[in-house]
Simulated assay, not measured.
Amino acid sequence: MLFAFSVAPSGGEGAGASVHEAVAAAIRIVRESGIPHRTDSMFTTLEGEWDECMDVIKRATEAVGEYGTRVSLVLKADIRPGYSGELTGKLERLEKALDGEG
Rank of each mutant, 00 (worst) to 15 (best):
L2M: 11
F3Q: 06
A4D: 12
A4P: 08
F5C: 09
F5T: 11
S6W: 12
S6A: 14
V7G: 06
V7A: 04
V7M: 07
A8L: 05
P9R: 08
P9C: 06
S10T: 15
S10V: 08
G11D: 11
G11E: 07
G11Q: 07
G14P: 02
A15R: 10
A17N: 11
S18P: 07
S18N: 06
V19T: 13
H20N: 08
H20L: 05
E21Y: 12
V23H: 02
V23P: 01
A24T: 06
A24C: 05
A26L: 00
R28L: 03
I29P: 02
I29M: 00
I29H: 01
V30G: 00
V30M: 03
V30W: 10
R31Y: 14
E32L: 01
G34A: 01
G34S: 00
I35T: 04
I35A: 03
P36D: 10
H37K: 13
R38H: 07
T39E: 14
T39F: 06
S41H: 12
M42W: 08
F43G: 01
T45Y: 01
L46T: 13
E47L: 09
E47C: 12
E49H: 06
W50K: 12
W50A: 05
W50Q: 13
E52K: 15
E52H: 15
C53E: 08
V56K: 10
I57R: 09
I57Y: 06
K58S: 15
R59H: 14
A60L: 02
A60M: 04
A60I: 08
A60Y: 03
T61P: 00
E62S: 09
E62V: 12
A63G: 11
G65T: 03
G65P: 02
E66A: 13
Y67H: 11
Y67W: 02
G68P: 05
R70G: 04
V71S: 01
V71M: 06
S72R: 09
S72I: 04
L73D: 07
V74Y: 05
V74P: 03
L75M: 10
K76F: 04
K76A: 12
K76W: 05
A77P: 04
A77Y: 03
D78T: 13
I79G: 00
R80S: 09
R80P: 00
R80F: 02
P81D: 02
P81W: 02
G82E: 02
G82K: 04
Y83Q: 13
Y83G: 01
Y83F: 09
Y83E: 08
G85A: 01
G85Y: 01
E86V: 03
L87P: 07
L87C: 13
L87E: 14
L87D: 14
T88I: 08
T88K: 07
L91C: 02
L91A: 10
L91Q: 07
L91E: 14
R93P: 01
R93Q: 10
L94C: 11
E95S: 09
K96G: 13
K96R: 15
L98H: 09
L98Q: 12
D99G: 03
E101L: 12
E101G: 06
E101C: 00
G102C: 05
